[in-house]
Design a binder for these strands. Structure first.
Length: 951
RNA sequence: GCAAGGGUAGCCAAGCUAGGCCAACGGCGACGGACUCAAGAUCCGUUCUCGUAGGAGUUCGUGGGUUCGAAUCCCUCCCCUUGCACCA
């Protein structure tokens, strides 16, 4: 019967579902393993990258099950937040890109679009209705999930649980109210996310320092990202055509652009406009530098954007190529300024003021940089690059001048923040947020930065950080280098705004207009899995904070513990902690670290996560997958084409879980071919009769069985380390390499037939986690029991045999040497003569073995023997050669090698060699009296390496 | 810039944490052969250079260093990928 994955896989899916094979219930006395993976976010369909994300934990779950554990692998759906809502909105607005993405990438038929018009409709569709839905994909892949525990984060009961979590955190003082800058659409009057942006998706807002220059009572704040240049300011620029306002800002009178008025108003400033006037009215005004007390002039410039910062900028020609070039141009055209009543002499007198020194440049870095680049006017596009370069170098290498007092002599990068804070405290500086370039929302509104009232998770709390670090310490971090990343993230996290103004999810219990955001409502939900299906029977209104207190903190923390909660507590205690969480690398810096933080705070140490495995990302034909570009591979398509086992095997075998993988159709096709071949061979074995009990075994049989035991050990060790690639490569491809030799060597007796069955049986058990459909099917056909229902194999000591491995190695290398010679000479031999090293050479070998790799010492010892001394040079050469050959081998192996009867080994293999080369094979001892040695080759014989003569 | 990962023979990709069985696993492609009317599939072999005896030479981003010995350890430089937050 040919391999037909469709049929085999359908049968097993049905059987697993009917048996409830993967429904896991707590069972006293059985070891529990709890495997989790972040629940999918159904804002679109499932693609092949997701398939791997969920298959990796499945393979581990299956492995642990074969190892005898009671394994729980649950799944749920994350529908919190704005992406789904946003996707629905875009659909309603008939956004063509969105519709194309749904139809092209995820194959949504026109007729189904109507189902996607509500957020939960949209979510449901991609959870289970669509061909490309997650649940259908997971079931097709054969993931061993306990589906009874499924839920969504929008479910009432789940929300009760999250409310309990947040009330608890608030009560512990880990939640705090405050203001936070966010991207804000002025048209919708609402915060927006990156997905909501039409223009400027890549742009991040920045915190600008406002340097409060003053013209009499009127402050003229100027925005800069380089507050340390305050001493280098030579003048200011204003847009003469812009509209400016004199406004009361928190009790001070400020001159700012009208655009800045709006922005500051949104940044928690109290702003009242008192009069408006065109920028030109302020040209020529004198302003005082708050740090140096110098008086500077405000000059007109068309390059000033009133919609950036405050609309008034300072000029630092010594350190900014832009400003330097502008100043040159201004000087050249100083006459034009008379129209503003400015004396050209004033402009002519402006000279760059350097404030720092830096190696690569002279006194005026901007001047040098501009001249070196040959820039003469401000329209030269190269000026941006030059500016960036000067900014970078000055930041990292610029040493501030002595005028900076405490900051003098320091590198900018080290003191910029401090310096800003210092002058802010003195009232000379202030700050505002803004974008460096225009940002527009999909609704068409201008996007600015607004301070929003919000609730923060206090990840900056030192006690909490300490607990989180403790959780990392006991964590099995896979790969190990992620450990450092967790530590780093914990140290670096500050306050995290954990609510949104809209979207799906759990409302903040005490302020229901806010929704707890997705990264914050998914930190301890693994605990919810342990009781999810049983919670369904508890009336929602009974799921009070006291109920969850009882469940998770125990009976002692509440006055009157509910019985049901105590029962569920036993479930939780049975399954928890999480054995391993499989996740993505980009989640280390947020979700996974939050996961650790919350566990560390809410649960006792023994309930903290035991392991996290971070998985690599997927590429498709060498390129990043992108659902918006339709560059995706869907699991259902792949499974239709290749079968689920092939998809699984490719995904797990092409790289280790934490490495990136590349889905390439040709490689997947090849994987399928390999499985076809495996199936055919397995069927041959299954259909061949073999004795039930081990008959007499030949050398090749014992050799391959010894190899099999090594393979079992290697695969098991790899699985324990989550090295699925190593494990599957070893069990499948590596072992097949050995099998090729075996097939060449093996006879056709009952021993061979028995050995083949024995090998197949073990191999199927090792492969069952990877290709469960095929492995179970074949194993059942072979033995009557599916592979997943028998214990994971362990090395059978009956067949562990180091000697047979080494002996066969001698045969193999003899075979290869003969082959090499045949190839080089291009002649077919009629007779192969093999000369085994003489006894005196073995004595030398023994000496090398005992003394080690010191040539002098070995020679000293060996020359004690008069018989050997006679051979002088030959002994010396042999010693050197043997030392080379034996280097790195351990004593045990050497002892074994010394003990092998080489001649017997070759004699036993002579028939085989003769068949292979179609020649007669003669075995001699080097010192045999009746030796045939036409070309005097025998002297080349060395222990473990016979001399050869082909005739 | 900071942080992490990576640069290996035509391509993909092991090995590098414990330096020497590494000319460097494996796959693809290519070439030769077997099977076949033929093609495909399958199987066997070759695939850095030289070589009519199992060998020798030169390779693992660059340039140095440590060592008897380095793809493997240390340093310099070049290049590539990813992340840098309120976005799941």
């Amino acid at each position: 019967m040919n391999y037909d994955p469709e049929e085999v896989e359908a049968a097993w899916r049905e059987r697993w579902a009917a048996e409830g094979r993967y429904e896991a219930d707590s069972a006293a006395g059985e070891e529990s393993t709890f495997v989790t993976v972040p629940y999918p976010y159904p804002s679109g369909g499932m693609h092949i990258g997701h398939a791997r994300t969920y298959t990796v934990p499945d393979v581990y779950a299956r492995y642990r099950r074969q190892q005898g554990d009671n394994v729980l692998f649950p799944m749920a759906w994350h529908v919190t937040g704005t992406p789904i809502v946003g996707a629905v909105e875009r659909l309603q607005q008939e956004d063509p890109a969105q519709i194309e993405s749904l139809q092209e990438a995820f194959g949504v038929p026109e007729a189904d679009l109507v189902e996607l018009e509500t957020p939960m409709g949209f979510a449901r569709y991609f959870i289970e209705r669509a061909e490309s839905s997650y649940k259908q994909g997971m079931q097709a892949l054969g993931l061993s999930i306990d589906w009874r525990r499924e839920f969504t984060t929008n479910d009432e009961r789940y929300q009760r649980f999250i409310r309990w979590q947040y009330e608890t955190l608030r009560d512990r003082g880990l939640l705090e109210r405050g203001l936070h800058p966010v991207k804000y659409c002025t048209a919708q009057e609402n915060p927006v996310t990156t997905h909501d942006l039409l223009e400027g998706e890549e742009v991040d807002f920045q915190e600008y320092t406002l340097i409060k220059f003053a013209g009499g009572e009127l402050f003229v704040p100027m925005a800069t990202l380089r507050p340390e240049t305050v001493r280098g300011v030579t003048n200011a620029y204003i847009d003469p055509a812009g509209t400016y306002a004199e406004a009361d800002v928190d009790g001070e009178r400020w001159l700012i652009s009208v655009e800045a008025v709006e922005k500051l108003g949104l940044q928690d400033r109290c702003v009242t406009v008192e009069r408006e006037a065109p920028g030109r009215d302020y040209v020529g005004m004198r302003v005082r530098n708050p740090v140096t007390d110098e008086d500077l002039v405000v000059l007109p410039a068309t390059f000033v954007d009133p919609d950036n910062g405050t609309g008034v900028v300072m000029s630092v020609p010594a350190h900014s190529p832009d400003d330097y070039v502008a100043l040159q141009e201004l000087k050249a055209n100083a006459e034009d300024l008379t129209e503003y009543g400015i004396d050209p002499a004033v402009v002519a007198a402006i000279e760059p003021v350097p404030i720092l020194s830096i190696e690569q440049y002279g006194e005026i870095p901007a001047k040098d940089a501009v001249e070196a680049a040959g820039i003469t006017d401000a329209t030269d596009p190269a000026i941006h690059e030059v500016t960036q370069e000067v900014y970078n170098r000055e930041f990292h290498q610029g040493v501030l001048n002595e005028e900076y007092g405490a900051f003098g002599g320091e590198v900018v990068a080290d003191v910029r923040d401090e310096l800003g804070a210092h002058y802010r405290e003195l009232g000379a500086f202030d700050r505002m947020y803004d974008f460096p370039e225009p940002v527009v929302s999909r609704a068409g509104g201008k996007v600015v930065v607004a301070n929003q009232e919000t609730w923060f998770l206090r990840y900056d709390d030192p006690e909490w950080k300490k607990k989180a670090h403790a959780a990392v310490e006991r964590l099995a971090a896979i790969p190990e280098n992620t450990r450092e990343q967790y530590e780093h993230t914990i140290d670096w996290l500050e306050q995290w705004p954990c609510i949104r103004n809209f979207g799906l999810g759990t409302p903040l219990p005490w302020d229901e207009e806010f929704i707890i955001e997705p990264l914050s409502d998914s930190t301890i939900y693994m605990a919810y899995y342990t009781v999810a299906h049983q919670l369904a029977d508890v009336p929602v209104e009974e799921l009070t904070p006291a109920f969850f207190d009882t469940l998770f903190f125990g009976p002692s923390v509440v006055d009157d513990p509910v019985e049901r909660a105590l029962e569920l507590r036993e479930e939780w205690e049975y399954w928890y902690p999480v054995t391993v969480r499989c996740s993505a690398p980009d989640l280390v810096a947020n979700h996974l670290t939050f996961f650790l933080f919350h566990h560390a705070e809410l649960f006792p140490e023994e309930m903290w996560p035991e392991g996290i495995t971070v998985m690599g990302l997927g590429l498709l034909e060498g390129e990043k997958m992108s659902s918006s570009k339709g560059h995706v591979e869907l699991p259902n398509d792949a499974i239709d084409r290749y079968g689920a086992d092939t998809v699984r095997f490719f995904l797990l075998n092409s790289s280790e879980p934490w490495q990136d993988f590349d889905w390439r159709a040709d490689a997947v096709g090849n994987t399928r071919t390999q499985l076809d071949r495996f199936w055919d061979r397995a069927m041959d074995v299954i259909e061949t009769n073999a004795p039930a009990d081990p008959p007499a075994l030949e050398q090749p049989d014992r050799w391959i069985l010894a190899h099999l035991q090594q393979t079992v050990d290697t695969v098991t060790a790899a699985m324990d380390r989550f090295e699925t690639r190593t494990a599957s490569q070893t069990a499948f491809y590596r072992f097949r390499e050995q099998l090729r030799w075996y097939e060449r060597r093996a006879g056709d007796g009952p021993g061979t037939a028995w050995t083949r069955r024995r090998i197949l049986e073990t191999q199927l058990q090792l492969l069952a986690p990877f290709i469960p459909f095929m492995a179970n099917e074949l194993h059942e056909r072979l033995t009557g029991t599916p592979a997943e229902d028998v214990p994971w194999p362990t090395a059978d000591t009956t067949y562990v045999d180091e000697r047979v491995l080494q002996e066969e190695e001698l045969v193999r290398s003899l075979y290869e040497d003969v082959g090499d010679i045949v190839e080089v000479t291009g002649e077919e031999p009629g007779v192969i003569r093999v000369y085994v090293a003489a006894p005196w050479k073995c004595e030398v070998f023994d000496a090398v073995r005992e003394i080690g790799d010191d040539v002098g010492q070995v020679m000293g010892e060996v020359m004690q023997d008069p018989e050997l001394r006679e051979r002088g040079d030959a002994v010396n050469r042999l010693v050197q050669e043997l030392i080379e050959d034996t280097r790195g081998l351990d004593d045990e192996t050497l002892a074994l090698l010394a003990d092998i009867d080489e001649r017997a080994v070759y004699t036993a293999a002579a028939e085989f060699l003769g068949e292979q080369f179609d020649a007669d094979v003669e075995i001699y001892g080097e010192a045999d009296p009746d030796i045939v040695d036409p070309t005097d080759k025998r002297g080349a014989a060395v222990p473990l390496r016979p001399a050869i003569h082909l005739d």
